[in-house]
Design a protein around this nucleic acid. Structure first.
Lengths: 300, 300
DNA sequence: TTCGGCGATACCTTTCGGGTCTGGCGCAAT
DNA sequence: ATTGCGCCAGACCCGAAAGGTATCGCCGAA
């Protein structure tokens, strides 16, 4: 039995007339008769009773008709289901992300977009620092990561695409002697203490900052490491030292710390999307597209 | 898309290996590859990802697999459904029947049989005298009738098959002068009054009784007609006259009436099944078979 | 009685499912 | 590095089966 038999049967059952059914099916009447005969033979019982004015459904035919319709409908549903999955309109995506993905607004915007336009995609979210994201990729626990550029041990197996950049600003304790100043230059910070994020969190940004300091003639004295931007700003607020942070953090005011733009510091924090190379995933692709779109809109 | 594609797809999805799937399907590997390729082309997206050790399901394939299984299952269900209907194991039957079908025990037995062995057959029951049954047949309100032989105007369009016969006995008022007698002969009843059923209810039986009386030398004096055996016996009990009734009525004792077997009266009440000739109905055939079986068992 | 409508049959054409042989690719073992 | 093997895909052929045309037989209506 093939779907063709069911399609033909339904047509004849609806027309109760081989000729009209054949016309509707765009075939000639004899082959239709034969297909129906074959179907009846396979099922083992007549489905139609041939009467002078056309045909009538037998009891078996009447029972078969709704089931045949259901089968055809189910076949179409199967096809659509595959197409929707291929289009990334359905499925599941496990996303690991760093803190900055949240406070930059990128991740919330993308989540809103998915909830609105792709509601049948299941998203699982995990806040993980880049090191844990790399582990999670290796263990197959996440499908996509949002982090600050390639992690330290990213080989070829991880594709990384920069999504978004944001200027770095300086966080200054309000109690600091420089807090009154408006215009900062890197050269004036040679003797200061710094609170810094771990290099593994954002190696490129870290190296970039250190290199700039070197160019300005000094090596930054790092008195404290802090995992997490908010923690870092807290420490700055407590007077431990100065800190470099992405600009979007300034919206989350922390008493005790002020933010200053530096004229000669063009270092940026980057957010990048990462996924296992070689793996196709329509949902992931839609997610990355959404990331690009959201970041693009935000940059404007 | 045909069911073949789905069958092949499911096999490959389960084996994750074209060669093994082909073996299972009893075909060679290249045609299988081609069918899958055609399916993928029709759906518009790859369902498998070809990897060195075999194949893996893509997101679309994963979504397609359960739906394809459902489709195949539904197709089988359709086929079984038709077969069960053809075998009379499912469907609906509207049965018209006369009173005697009940008190003879035939109809209750058949209903019990259906409830036990063919529970998914829907039976609709209508107690109708033979005249109303003929009307109901004409209007297409019943599919089967149980009555006393062919109705008066039964042409060729009604097939009638005798199912069961039962001797006729004499109902005598206890107050009657003959009530003390045990042995009755027809000849001794020439001067009696009779309560009789309408001829249309059971023409053959009616004519038979009258003919026997004629043979015995008299024409029965019918003082009252009564539609329904119980009514008839009531009238006999009330002393209106004697009455001929099927023997199974004797189990329903009626005060005021006694039953006597007649030595020289071999008239029988018959129950017959009737249906529109030329119409096939597996359920009806099962029902008639059950009627025959039940009546046969009861005759023993 | 003839005529028209309808499904079935006979027979031919064409499409396509399935077979064999072979090629290409990637991994593993030597 | 090279060879061998496993696996899927492509090329090509054959036969089965789907679809087309012509025609028949049947039945009801005129």
């Amino acid at each position: 039995m093939e779907l063709r038999h069911l399609r033909y049967f339904v047509a004849v059952a609806e027309e109760l007339h081989f000729g009209r059914a054949a016309t509707r099916l765009r075939i000639a009447q004899p082959p239709l008769s034969r297909q129906i005969r074959d179907l009846e033979r396979e099922i083992g019982t007549p489905l139609f009773e041939r009467v002078p004015r056309g045909v009538e459904l037998t009891a078996a035919g009447s029972a078969f008709l709704p089931e045949a319709r259901l089968t055809l409908a189910q076949a179409e549903r199967a096809q659509r289901s595959a197409q929707r999955a291929a289009g990334g309109e359905t499925g599941r995506l496990r996303v690991g992300f760093v803190e900055a993905a949240t406070h930059s607004g990128i991740l919330p915007d993308v989540l809103g977009f998915f909830r609105q336009h792709l509601p049948s995609v299941g998203l699982s979210l995990f806040e993980l620092d880049p090191v844990r994201q790399a582990d999670a990729f290796r263990d197959g626990r996440i499908d996509l990561g949002i982090l600050h550029g390639p992690p330290l041990d990213a080989d070829r197996w991880l594709r990384v695409e920069t999504i978004y950049t944001e200027p770095v600003v300086l966080a200054v304790p309000r109690s600091h002697r420089l807090a009154g100043r408006v215009r900062f230059t890197l050269g004036g910070l040679a003797t200061e203490s710094f609170v810094m994020f771990p290099r593994a969190v954002a190696p490129a940004m870290y190296d970039d900052l250190v290199a700039r300091c070197r160019s300005a003639g000094f090596s930054p004295r790092i008195v404290q490491e802090a995992a997490g931007w908010h923690t870092l700003v807290s420490l700055v607020g407590a007077g431990v030292g100065l800190g470099f942070v992405p600009r979007s953090l300034t919206t989350a005011q922390q008493h005790g710390a002020a933010y200053r733009t530096m004229r000669d510091l063009s270092v940026h924090m980057t957010l990048a999307a990462a996924w296992k190379s070689g793996e196709r995933s329509p949902v992931r692709e839609r997610f990355v597209m959404a990331l690009r779109a959201v970041a693009g809109a935000r940059a404007r």
